[in-house]
Design a protein around this nucleic acid. Structure first.
Lengths: 196, 196
DNA sequence: TAAGGTTCCTAACGTTCGTTAGCAAGCGTA
DNA sequence: TACGCTTGCTAACGAACGTTAGGAACCTTA
């Protein structure tokens, strides 16, 4: 068992439906019977495909973590580029991952608390590593005199906060394409609201 | 019954403990037995003081909504002031409410989904009204040539997003006093990260 | 002392929860 | 045809859930 690619279709379907339910009702408030009904089958049948409810949450959260890291790595790959430019790319990559799967992003951002140990601790460590990446970019941007802020850690949190609120209001069918959203977000965060 | 001020102390104690638990474990994942144990009594005893678990969530959410509106009204009371200044005050008021009771703020921001109807709909309407207040300030700031943005609604969402992430990392015992946090947040959001 | 209110208890209710066991139908491959 | 794999079913398990009923101890006020 656990070979390369058997039984991926039905499992993926369960993941997707679970993601949508976890997003709107929350992990704890979503029952396996609800999930089963949304898929058109009985609760017990789910366990032919998954091991537990916890496993679903685990897969959703860590898959997205992988996506964020991959995007960040790509955005900061060209280290010859100024840090401020790399930061803008990292912001746009972050937004791209968020908009690519809004439901999974919302779960990733809000439902990770319900991960059982040791996954929860592992998740938080990953999150911290990711934030540290942004912090370093901002720090280097300041050294290169392209950015300014009184508190790097503070600025990092605020920046990611703005980005991470996106899944609460973003609608894939909205008029703004993800790339445009990413661009505007980066503009507003880097240039501010005030007229110079 | 339901007179002016009988039995307020124990009830308030329950509210406070429930707020802390709802924040860390989430509303759905917090059981009345857990809540009772945290207060040093049995589950059934809670119902001498409250009507239901739902009532607890309702009170927490709507009390904070009141606080936000009161703060906003005070911040924008002097309509002779430029909109950009009123906006800064409104931001600082928002941060003040958030930091005054971080646990309740976190519940307000994340657990309102579990309000049952019609409270949930009512809550969302209040939230929209509050956001509209900020939107109007930004709009007027643009007309008065003190602010600039390509999309008012967009800027409003981003601004509130930065503020609302605060309860996830703010520690009352931290080195920065709330007023300083409010000031820095307003600065970063209004002036941006980039060097002019 | 009597009355009323507050606070908390024990015990239990009906329901829902995540999960398991055992079985059967359908499938493609040998 | 026979095999193994996938997919799904029914039925049930023990546990936990929110909530209620009924009673007891305590405090204050009359």
């Amino acid at each position: 068992m656990e070979a390369t690619a058997p039984t991926l279709s039905r499992k993926a379907q369960i993941d997707q439906t679970a993601t949508a339910l976890f997003r709107t009702r929350g992990f704890a408030a979503t029952s396996m019977r609800e999930l089963a009904e949304a898929l058109g089958l009985e609760a017990g049948s789910l366990y032919s495909h998954i091991k537990s409810k916890q496993e679903l949450l685990h897969r959703i959260c860590f898959r997205l973590a992988d996506d964020f890291f991959a995007g960040f790595a790509a955005a900061t790959h060209d280290s010859a580029e100024p840090a401020a430019v790399q930061l803008r790319w990292a912001i746009e990559s972050h937004v791209r991952v968020l908009t690519q799967d809004v439901a999974a992003s919302a779960v990733f951002l809000h439902e990770w608390r319900h991960l059982s140990e040791p996954a929860r601790t592992e998740f938080l460590a990953l999150r911290e590593r990711y934030e540290a990446g942004f912090r370093l970019l901002i720090q280097r941007g300041i050294e290169q005199n392209d950015l300014r802020t009184s508190d790097t850690a503070f600025a990092t949190l605020t920046l990611l906060a703005s980005l991470n609120w996106l899944p609460t209001w973003y609608k894939p069918e909205g008029k703004l394409p993800p790339s445009e959203i990413a661009h505007r977000l980066a503009d507003q965060l880097l240039l501010g609201l005030a007229n110079s």
